[in-house]
Amino acid sequence: MGALLARIFNRDQQNAPPPINRAHDVSQQDQAVLDLKLQRDKLKRYQNKLEIQMEKERELAKKLLRDGKRDKAKLLLKKKKYTESLLEKTDGQLSNLETMVGNLEYAQIEMKVVEGLKSGNEALTMLHKIMSIEDVESLIADTQDAIEYQKEIDELLGTRLTQEDEESLLKELEQITQGEDEALINQLPAAPVGGLEDEIAPVRGASKQPEKRTAIAT
């Protein structure tokens, strides 16, 4: 026993991680499915038995016929008929079992879907709790207050500028923009004075001139 334990221990050491027990992942429904499937296995084995039996009976009937024992052969074929009916019945039972297994497995999937929806819903309500309507309302009200406060400050600062200040300010603004306009015009190339010098490409020259004019106007 000690040697055996030592051997098992040694062998397990090679694939080191400790065994994981997932017995809790086997639900009651799984147990029920297993019960049904075990029952199905039993029926299948029973069917196998019946099939072998039928084959034997057929062979025996053949042999009896060859030997001229018609009555006995007839009796045997009757028995075979009965075995056949049993086989058909078990087929029905098997399909019942399989339907049941299918229903159970499908119901489990449905349950998973419902669980998923439930946890999604919980997460959503939790988010809503964090973000309650009162909070949002007070937040908006606070923001509104802050905006109004800012406006007041602006007004306070704005009243300091007199009408005169405003006028000189506008003048200065005009001066700056005018200076910029002149600088812009100076940057432009001079407009051509003569007629079309390049006769080879009159179209290009003609299209260029109005373009320049519009550039100045703007």
Partner: peptide
């Protein structure tokens, strides 16, 4: 059993000690 040790399956034992009527759930 090796699959069970790796967490890839769980053997569901029933009454037979030789496990002939056992089941398994794969993960």
């Amino acid at each position: 059993q090796t699959l069970q040790n790796d967490g890839k399956a769980q053997i569901i034992q029933r009454s037979n000690p030789d496990m002939s009527d056992a089941g398994v759930k794969f993960f």
